[in-house]
Design a protein around this nucleic acid. Structure first.
Length: 546
RNA sequence: GCGCCCGUAGCUCAGUGGACAGAGCAACGGCCUUCUAAGCCGUCGGCCGGAGGUUCGAAUCCUCCCGGGCGUACCA
């Protein structure tokens, strides 16, 4: 946030001094080297290369013109950088502002007109959710929190692909398992789902219905599809609940078929001259819109492919009034995205409506071994196993700690670790430590009156560093949301926790000097409020005791 | 072959075109009468996959190459 203020300040100063600069070139950053101040700008270098003067001289001029107000020092360095050092009094003041608001995000929580819909997980209800879905579930959930926390109107949705070929394969596999339970020699389909979970379901079907469905026909298929679907949807919802992931809506693909939306979408595409027939199938002219090749919308057997209902679904999202439809998809859906973009353009939807965050796969390392997963082969670790074993806090944290477009190697051994080497506990423990300090002080954080604090007592470098870092929190949240990068928040959490632990180890909060104690308690409360907000966005608990 | 993503310390990864590239783990060396040692402090460790280019300045942008993942279906 504060970076933006400096930018505004600079742009005013530049105007006063008759310099002209493109807004994009006016950059303020936080140097990694503390010798270069808390913030710095290269604007004088940009002006120099634009021929408006000599960088160092411009820098001197700008530095002289800037009020000293929130800064201790504004200096020129190197070829023409301008470095800003925040004053202690500004920082202390900002701690009081935080304590007064009792909410670290007031600055960025502004009402935004845009309505954002986020769709994620959306697996075929043909099997249990695996660690891969788990990453997406947490990414989507945290992104939704991030957007809400900066003032967006967010709506989350899970789309069940409960129609189509995969469902038929599932039904057939389930029937085969059922027949096997009854002692018939029926082979599990080659393409079928090999996991044991279908055997469990088959067993319960035998218990309830006996041998009523030994003949494979349309009625039997429908029956097993229905049973399998109900059972899988139930499990999926249960798994997500235990991961603390909530959806505002569950949407079924079958609904789009029933109410004619799929057909209507096809008709629109035909009207827009976006389709043609070949080999008995209906094709979308996707290549015209930048896709690598045309794709089939309706197969020669009359069934639509996955693409057509998905187009209908997004038309529906658009008609429901969302301004942006963010969809989280796995890396294997890249081609689908290109097809969707082409199809949506043919339907006449605005280009920036459909946005996709592609996330790479998860591998799991345990006892030094890396294990990969496949739902169809039945080789996978389910989300449920993971949560039962590690708890939702740990699972959630690990799943968002890496940026979505990177492969995630889930370090099972570290996740299992109950020590401060585990970053989840490290962050939680910082929070808990503060609770513990307040207990020791026989005071609740709520009782602490910020108006009675003498923050001038806070002048240790670590104290000012902590405030400085907290000052950056709102901006971190905003960046994490807008960049679709929840991992920024995780990194920030580790940094803040680390700084606090260091401080805690070096200084005592509760000391004989009562005024100092109170001021330090105020600082602790600031950290606590910030961590609480962060953990809440990540969906990780903030324990009172550990 | 073509397309997308990734390649940064031994390992797992951060790093919004800036000024000597960071963290955690591992390794090594220290440290417990204290608000929780489930800890703390320190040291070691890098031609940022390679080669060109753009720029006053590149881990970051462009091109090519190498390595890994994914895709390239009338599956989802």
């Amino acid at each position: 946030m504060f970076k933006k203020e400096i930018r505004d300040l600079l742009s005013g100063t530049l105007e006063d001094l008759d310099y002209e600069i493109d807004g994009d070139l006016l950059r303020v950053e936080e140097p990694s080297n503390p010798d270069h101040g808390d913030f710095s700008t290269n604007v004088a270098l940009e002006l120099g290369s634009d021929g408006q003067g000599i960088p160092r001289e411009i820098a001197e001029e700008i530095a002289d013109a800037i009020e000293s107000e929130p800064f201790d020092r504004v200096s020129v360095a190197g070829p023409g950088f301008i470095n800003f050092v925040l004053s202690g009094s500004y920082l202390r003041e900002s701690l009081l502002t935080l304590l007064e608001a009792n909410d670290p995000l007031t600055g960025v929580r502004e009402p935004r007109a845009e309505r954002v819909q986020i769709e994620f997980v959306s697996s075929n209800p043909t099997g249990p959710l695996t660690v891969g879905h788990c990453r997406q579930a947490v990414l989507g959930d945290v992104l939704a929190s991030l957007y809400r926390s900066i003032g967006y109107d967010v709506f989350t949705e899970y789309y069940f692909n409960d129609e189509g070929r995969q469902m038929k394969v599932m039904a057939h596999t389930l029937w085969a398992r059922y027949m096997q339970q009854l002692g018939h020699d029926v082979e599990t389909p080659e393409e079928g789902y090999k996991g044991d979970y279908l055997i469990d379901i088959a067993r319960s079907v035998v218990e309830e219905y006996g041998d009523d469905y030994t003949k494979w026909d349309d009625e039997t298929e429908e029956f097993f599809k229905e049973i399998g679907l109900t059972e899988m949807v139930d499990r999926i919802k249960g798994d997500l609940r235990s991961l603390e992931v909530k959806f505002d809506n569950w949407f079924s693909e079958s609904e789009l078929h029933r109410n004619g939306e799929v057909e209507k979408t096809l008709a629109t595409l035909e009207d827009n001259d976006a389709t043609y027939e070949e080999d008995g199938a209906v094709w979308l002219k996707a290549e015209e819109e930048g896709a690598p090749q045309d794709v089939v919308l309706v197969k020669s057997d009359g069934d639509p492919t996955y693409l057509l209902p998905d187009l209908a679904y997004h038309k529906d999202k658009y008609d429901r009034g969302f301004d942006r439809a963010l969809v989280l998809l796995g890396a294997d859906h890249q081609r689908h995205v290109e097809n969707m973009n082409a199809g949506l353009r043919k339907l006449g939807l605005p280009d920036d409506f459909y946005q996709v965050l592609i996330n790479q796969f998860v591998s799991l390392s345990k006892d030094g071994e890396i294990r990969r997963m496949s739902t169809r082969k039945g080789e996978f670790i389910t989300m449920k196993d993971l949560i039962d074993d590690l708890g939702s806090d740990v699972v959630r944290y690990f799943m968002v700690a890496r940026k979505p477009e990177s492969h995630l190697e889930f370090d099972y051994d570290l996740a299992k670790e109950r020590s401060m080497e585990n970053p989840v506990y490290y962050i939680q423990y910082a929070y808990t430590r503060i609770v513990s300090i307040f207990n020791k002080a026989e005071q609740s954080p709520g009782e602490l009156d910020y108006r009675e604090l003498n923050v001038d007592k806070l002048d240790e470098p670590e104290e000012l560093e902590l405030i400085k870092l907290m000052d950056r929190y709102p901006e971190t949240v905003e960046v994490a949301a807008l960049d679709y990068g929840p991992h920024h928040l995780a990194s920030y959490g580790e940094e803040l926790a680390s700084l606090f632990h260091t401080y805690y180890n070096k200084y005592r909060v509760l000391v004989d000097d009562e005024e100092l104690s109170r001021a330090r308690l105020g600082l602790c409360k600031g950290v606590q409020v910030t961590l609480q907000s962060l953990l809440q966005i990540l969906g990780v608990s903030a324990p009172q005791k550990m």
